[in-house]
Amino acid sequence: MKSLFSLIALFFISLTFAQRFDNIKIETTKLSDHVYMLVGAGGNIGVSIGEDGVFVIDDQFAPLSEKILTAIKALSDKPLNFLVNTHWHGDHSGGNENMAEAGATIIAHDNVRVRMEKPRRDGSKNPKEALPIVTFNDKLNINVNGEPIAVFHVENAHTDGDAILYFTESNVLHTGDTYFKGRYPFIDLNSGGSVNGYIEAAKRGLMVIDNDTKIIPGHGAPSNKSEYKAFLEMLEEIKANISKAIAEGKTEEDVAKDGSLTKKYDDLDFGSGFINSERIRVTFYKSLKGK
Rank of each mutant, 00 (worst) to 15 (best):
H158P: 07
V112N: 10
R183Y: 02
T135N: 06
V144Q: 01
Y179W: 05
P148R: 00
T159A: 13
S124I: 07
T175P: 00
E129D: 12
E155N: 03
L131P: 02
E117R: 15
L173N: 02
A150N: 09
E169M: 04
F152C: 05
D162F: 13
N171I: 01
F167I: 08
T168G: 01
D138L: 03
I142S: 01
N143S: 03
V134F: 05
R183G: 13
N111E: 06
Y184R: 02
V154D: 07
T168K: 12
E129Y: 04
L140C: 07
E147F: 06
N141F: 07
E169W: 02
F152E: 08
F136A: 04
R115A: 15
L165M: 15
T175R: 09
A157L: 07
D162C: 11
F152W: 03
D122S: 13
S170K: 11
F186T: 07
F186W: 10
R120G: 13
K128G: 10
N126H: 14
E117T: 13
V151H: 06
I149G: 01
P148E: 01
N137M: 01
I149M: 00
I164E: 14
L165S: 07
A163V: 11
Y166Q: 09
G161V: 06
N137Q: 05
P127Y: 09
V172E: 14
F167C: 10
H158K: 09
T175C: 11
M116I: 12
P185K: 08
V134H: 06
M116G: 11
A163I: 09
N156L: 10
V134T: 06
T159H: 09
F152R: 01
V172L: 10
R120S: 13
H174L: 02
G176V: 09
I164L: 14
N137E: 03
V114K: 14
P148L: 00
R113A: 15
P148G: 00
N145I: 00
Y166F: 15
S170T: 05
H153W: 09
F152D: 03
T159G: 08
T178C: 11
E169F: 06
T175G: 02
I164N: 14
V134C: 00
G123D: 12
L131G: 03
V114G: 10
D160S: 13
N171A: 07
N137S: 09
A150C: 08
A130K: 02
F186Q: 07
N137Y: 05
A130E: 08
E117V: 06
G123T: 08
K128A: 15
Y179Q: 02
N111R: 15
K128D: 15
R113K: 15
I142C: 11
F152N: 07
I142G: 06
E129Q: 08
K139C: 05
D162H: 09
N111W: 14
N143K: 01
T159F: 08
G182D: 03
G146D: 04
R113V: 15
D160W: 05
